[in-house]
């Protein structure tokens, strides 16, 4: 009879929620690769292999300037890693990638070999949202992978609720929006209305390469190439899709709930 069975099962299994952030983060799949790192010093001035191979034109090598890899456009296909002869672009295996400012995602300059991770919200918003953040998720033409990996944060392994973060049904109940997808023209009105329906103060989180810069569909006329065209964004989480750990890390960083300092490991 399922009643006894489920109770016994629960008792046997105990608590299945991961210890992170109080413990170590769960390991990323070994082939995942995590964030990319650009060591511009190793670049050969005449080489442009990574530029031609990148499907979303995320890498630029303007004349006289070092290589610039825009992690916001990156879909983490790792073609550039494979093709680079000097190993200037490498995979770090680090899950932490969330940033507050769009320019922080552009790697390549001397001090920007790796991502400058997100600072927490300012004092006022942290007091409001730090212990209770209600988000309204809007899928503005997302392919359902970012949505699925956001959804999984609500399951018992990740348990987003223990941080006071919850996804709500109505924007009226929300403190901010979590947007996935490149923001198609067909969703423009709905997104604007949803944003308008959220009471102030509000935050906007863009999850996934599509929401930041259009993802694999970058340049198509059917959409706006990401959220920034329409709304001010407070947090960018790159990935295609970002691993749930990356999303969680980004959210916690935004709320100032992580103990470790931001920056390079």
């Amino acid at each position: 009879m399922f009643v006894q069975d489920t109770l016994l099962n629960r008792l046997k299994r105990g608590c299945e929620t991961m210890a992170y952030p109080k413990g170590a983060a769960p390991a990323l799949p070994d082939r995942h690769g995590g964030a990319l790192r650009v060591d511009a010093a190793r670049c050969d001035a005449k080489c442009g292999a990574c530029v031609t191979v990148c499907p979303t034109e995320a890498i630029a090598r303007p004349a006289g300037k070092p290589v610039a890899l825009d992690l916001g456009r990156c879909i983490f296909c790792a073609e550039c890693v494979t093709v680079c002869p000097t190993k200037a672009i490498t995979r770090t295996g680090d899950h932490r990638m969330a940033v507050r400012r769009r320019e922080d995602l552009v790697l390549g300059d001397a001090s920007k070999e790796q991502v400058r991770l997100a600072q927490a919200l300012d004092e006022k918003l942290r007091r409001l949202f730090g212990r209770s953040l209600r988000l309204r998720q809007v899928s503005a033409a997302g392919c359902n992978a970012c949505e699925a990996d956001t959804n999984v944060l609500g399951t018992i392994g990740w348990d987003l609720g223990r941080f006071g973060i919850q996804f709500v049904a109505s924007p009226r109940h929300a403190d901010g929006l979590l947007i996935t997808g490149p923001v198609s023209k067909n969703m423009e009105l709905a997104l604007k209305k949803t944003y308008a329906a959220v009471p102030d103060p509000k935050i906007v989180i863009a999850v996934g390469a599509c929401a930041i810069a259009g993802g694999p569909f970058i340049g198509h006329p059917q959409h706006h190439n990401g959220t920034s065209a329409l709304l001010p964004v407070d947090l960018y989480i790159p990935g295609c899709p970002p691993h749930p750990l990356t999303i969680l890390d980004g959210l916690l960083r935004l709320l100032g709930r992580l103990d470790e300092p931001t920056g390079i490991r």
């Binding site: 879909i75 033409a141 198609s184 067909n186 569909f217 198509h220 059917q222």
Partner: peptide
């Protein structure tokens, strides 16, 4: 609502981004 114009983008391809668009 989620029309991203994939079929139109594939025309003339396969382009660099085509296989990534097929994945998504």
């Amino acid at each position: 609502f989620q029309h991203r114009g994939i079929e139109e983008a594939v025309t003339g391809g396969p382009h660099r981004a085509t296989v990534y668009q097929m994945e998504t």
